[in-house]
């Protein structure tokens, strides 16, 4: 077994929402780590703080206090511009709703993150985007406009787009929530395959116990607190990772 390499360390993370005189504590001191190559599930009932946590991990939301260290960089105190730059290079998103750009083709959507960073749509960028679309089984649909694709195809394009910058962490928020059973199965199988083949780290927020069961570890958040961390082989302490994908 290889020594687990942590890519994300969360320590005593808190998030409060203030409305007038009322302070709602949504996250109440979370601490855990995410390791390179992990396939991790984030579980919890509605209102547990799961989405808030995912937003903070995606650097779209700032924590009220606590530390969030990713790839050796402290992000809780970074400026907006630093967070934007960090996000563009190291974090990929797959949302419940695909959020593709409707006026662009599948290929252009996948190439978008790299083209935006480089300022041009280079041949190398388009080649990589085409390879990613091939990998998600949409080689023959790459020039289709996003609006011409089915729901499952759109979500696969969104997955390819999340992988475009070869991010250290892909955050997936209910990635199968809008899909039928068959498409959901395809998407999950695809994510698992990418994780197994490339060692891409996934953190998947889900309600579905079947999806959670396919992950290496399961973090359960209840009422803003980490209620438990469970590995595929059984309950475990935070920070310990008994099973890792090939690195």
């Amino acid at each position: 077994m290889t020594t687990p390499r942590s890519i994300l360390d969360i320590t005593d993370l808190r998030k409060d929402y203030v409305t007038g005189d009322t302070v709602a504590q949504v996250l109440k001191g979370l601490s855990f780590s995410v390791y390179a190559g992990e396939f991790l599930a984030l579980l919890g009932p509605s209102g547990s703080g799961k989405s808030t946590l995912l937003s903070i991990l995606g650097t779209l939301l700032r924590p009220t206090s606590g530390s969030m260290r990713m790839l050796g960089q402290e992000l809780s105190t970074a400026t907006d511009a630093e967070l934007t730059n960090f996000r563009s290079r190291n974090i990929g998103f797959v949302f419940q709703y695909h959020h593709l750009l409707p006026d662009f083709s599948a290929l252009e959507n996948v190439a978008f993150p790299a083209s935006a960073v480089m300022g041009r749509e280079t041949d190398a960028v388009l080649l990589r985007a085409a390879q990613l679309l091939d990998r998600v089984g949409l080689r023959d649909r790459m020039h289709y406009k996003a609006t011409k694709l089915s729901g499952g195809q759109k979500q696969r394009v969104a997955i390819a787009r999340a992988l475009m910058m070869n991010p250290a962490l892909v955050l997936a928020d209910e990635p199968t929530g809008n899909l039928d059973r068959e498409n959901a199965e395809h998407v999950m199988a695809l994510l698992a395959r990418i994780n197994a083949e490339s060692g891409t780290t996934f953190l998947i927020s889900t309600h579905d116990p079947d999806i959670a069961a396919r992950c290496h570890r399961r973090l359960t958040v209840i009422d803003g607190r980490l209620a438990g961390i469970e590995t595929s082989s059984g309950p475990d302490d935070a920070g310990h990772r008994p099973m890792l994908a090939a690195e």
Binding site: L60, N85, R87, H99, L101, R161
Partner: peptide, 16 residues
């Protein structure tokens, strides 16, 4: 609005 939001989530800068 949503498209701009998704671009920003992909790390596209405000200046862009």
């Amino acid at each position: 609005r949503a498209e701009i939001g998704i671009m920003r989530s992909m790390g596209v800068s405000k200046e862009f």
